[in-house]
C-alpha cells in the first residue's frame, strides 16, 4: 500500500536536479504512505570504485570510525560520506565483496542497503517530506532514481523494511500492492542463496529479479517471468545501472501513470505527483498496460 515515483532523465541538463525533482514528486504521495519513505538515486560514480550505502540499527553509528577500521582491514583507501542516519562508503570495486563480508562480520549493527557503482539508497521511518529533508535528497544529482512512500501492510514499520529494496549490485525495486505468494517465493529464493533481510514482500520481489538476472536473463525477461511466478497485486518500478523499468500485474488495479518528454520518462502512482516536473503540461501521458514490461535505458 504505497506511493511510487520514478524519474529517468534522458538529457544531461536535468541531471543535477534529479534529487530535487524526485523529492517534489514524492511530496505529493505522503498520504499514500505516511509510515516511511525511501529514495534510490543513481549518482555519479568513480571508475574502479564501488559504493555501499550503510545504515545502522543502533541510534547513532560512527561511520567515519567504521570507515577507518574498514580501510585498515582491507588495506585500501575507503571514503565515507555521511547523510543523516546513513553513510555512503566508497571502496575499490575489486574489494567490494571483501569489504561487504568484513562489515557483516565486524559491524553487527550495520545494514548494507545497496551496493554498486552508482546506486545510493536512503530510507527511514517517518513522514516522507521530513525524510527527504533530513537526507538532503534535493541536493543530489544523478541519471535516474525511484522513490517510495509506504503504508505498511503486513511487515514491521522499520527503516530497513522501507522501500526501495536492493538485492543486487546497482539494482533496486519499489512496489505498490500486496503479493499473495511471497512466503513460498522467499523459501525458494533461500534455497538459491538469496536471503531477504526483512519480512517485506517487496524484498522478495527484488530478490526474485536479482536471481533471474544472475541466471543471465535480461531485466525485461525477468520482469516478464515475474508475472507468472509472483502472485497478487503489484506495480513494480525497478532501477538498474543504466535503466529504469515498470511492470504491472495482469489485473492492474494499483494505479500507475507515466509521462514522457524529450528530457525524461517519469512514473507516479498519481498524476499530481508528476505536476512538479518541467514541461509536464506538454508531456505525453499514458498508463502502462497490464502484464507488459516497460524499459528505458541510457
Amino acid at each position: 500500500m504505497c506511493g511510487i515515483a520514478g524519474l529517468f532523465i534522458k538529457r544531461t541538463r536535468l541531471q543535477p536536479r534529479l534529487g530535487e525533482l524526485l523529492a517534489s514528486m514524492t511530496s505529493t504521495l505522503c498520504s499514500r504512505g505516511p509510515d516511511s519513505a525511501g529514495f534510490a538515486l543513481y549518482t555519479a560514480g568513480e571508475p574502479g570504485r564501488a559504493k555501499l550505502t550503510l545504515t545502522s540499527v543502533e541510534e547513532r553509528a560512527d561511520f567515519e570510525a567504521l570507515g577507518e577500521m574498514l580501510s585498515r582491514a582491507v588495506s585500501a583507501p575507503v571514503s565515507v560520506v555521511g547523510r543523516y542516519t546513513h553513510a555512503v562508503v566508497t571502496v575499490p570495486a575489486d574489494l567490494v565483496n571483501l569489504c561487504r563480508n568484513w562489515l557483516l562480520e565486524n559491524a553487527q549493527d550495520v545494514r548494507i542497503l545497496s551496493e554498486g557503482g552508482h546506486l545510493e539508497i536512503y530510507k527511514e521511518v517517518g513522514y516522507p517530506d521530513d525524510i527527504a529533508r533530513s537526507f538532503g535528497i534535493a541536493s543530489l544529482g544523478g541519471t535516474h532514481g525511484i522513490a517510495h512512500t509506504r503504508m505498511a501492510t503486513e511487515s514491521a514499520v522499520t527503516a530497513t523494511g522501507a522501500h526501495p529494496f536492493s538485492t543486487g549490485p546497482d539494482q533496486c525495486l519499489v512496489h505498490n500492492g500486496s503479493l499473495s505468494n511471497h512466503a513460498s517465493v522467499r523459501r525458494e529464493l533461500g534455497r538459491d542463496g538469496i536471503v531477504p533481510q526483512t519480512e517485506n514482500d517487496t524484498e522478495v520481489a527484488a530478490g526474485y529479479l536479482t536471481r533471474e538476472l544472475k541466471r543471465g536473463r535480461s531485466l525485461g525477461e525477468a520482469l516478464k517471468s515475474s508475472v507468472e511466478d509472483l502472485d497478487g497485486f503489484f506495480t513494480f518500478v525497478v532501477g538498474t545501472k543504466n535503466g529504469f523499468g515498470v511492470l504491472r500485474d495482469p489485473i492492474a488495479c494499483k494505479p500507475a501513470v507515466m509521462a514522457e518528454t524529450d528530457d525524461y520518462v517519469a512514473f507516479a502512482s498519481e498524476y499530481r505527483s508528476l505536476t512538479p516536473l518541467p514541461g509536464i503540461k506538454s508531456a505525453k501521458l499514458f498508463e502502462p498496460k497490464p502484464a507488459t514490461p516497460y524499459f528505458w535505458e541510457h
Partner: peptide, 13 residues
C-alpha cells in the same frame, strides 16, 4: 468481492 473503483488502503484513503 472487491470495490469497483479502489483496491487497497492507499486508494481507500
Amino acid at each position: 468481492c472487491r470495490h469497483p473503483d479502489w483496491t487497497g488502503a492507499d486508494d481507500l484513503e
